[in-house]
Amino acid sequence: MNLSTTFLGQKFPNPIVLASGILGVTAAGMTNVIKNGCGAVTAKSLAVKPRPGHPNPTVISNEHYMINAVGLSGEGLENAEAEFAKYKKNCPKNPLIASVISMKMEGFEAVTKRVNQTKADLIEVNISCPNVEDEFGRSFAALPETAYEATKIVKANSELPVIIKISPNVTSIVEIAKAVEEGGADAVNMGNTLGPGMVIDTHFKKPVLANKMGGVSGPAIKPITVKNVWQISQSTNLPIIATGGILTGNDAVEMFLAGASLVGIGSGVYYRGIEIFQKVNDEIQEYMEKENVGEIKDLIGFAHQ
């Protein structure tokens, strides 16, 4: 049984990727995730310049879901470059995915070019964060036209393979995935948080998150991820990172069967502790032994056959 896998020409020691926005602020934080069994990391979504983000509460959680509106705070790629280099020195065999954002379409060129100067192995473009929205409350991932446009700009400027992180909050995920493929994406991450949603405190009679609304993640959203991965796998040739609700090895296998090549874990750290990465690896391994599966790639898309 072999957990190692290849994705966009990069070797991954196992199919688990730290999702963006979780423990990805510093080299030390990301290195600790690798020490706990994760295969690769995605750094926090960054612009070129620092961003302050929202006041607290930014993240709250219960047994069913997590909801967050951190507001894309970050030190900016100009400051993160040193953290990236340190991470790669610590973990040369664990790919580093740089996640980038831009508030405006024209900003994708500069942010992509800035990533070219760093030690990142892959670039992931967060066109789907529900906290960055246009006047009608839409992310770039909400419409095929803007998803296509953003992908095309990044692809034209990137020296690295391009992953587009799309949103589950669309009428037709197939339409969006096809637009991204047409724009030249090398892969998709399916996907960002669901919603946005809202939690209102019944005593104070006010929304809890400082931003009032936030993206929903955690176990409740897993069936939506499975369905979206299934449809993208069926309608495009894009390799897929499945992110959204994965807590166990069985959840990961479900994503592989639906068509994912890798799985992202984020909120799961809340539900199972930082040990989740090793636990999920062990559980995938157990499944492969039980079902007599030699390699991860033998599982990818199997449910479609």
């Binding site: 979780i22 423990l23 510093t26 030390a28 600790n32 926090k44 930014t58 750290v269 809340y270």
Partner: peptide, 14 residues
């Protein structure tokens, strides 16, 4: 609760 990564110490990641 240990997920945002904001308070991790160098170099242990604690």
């Amino acid at each position: 609760f240990g997920i945002c990564g904001q308070c991790c110490l160098d170099d242990s990641g604690l």
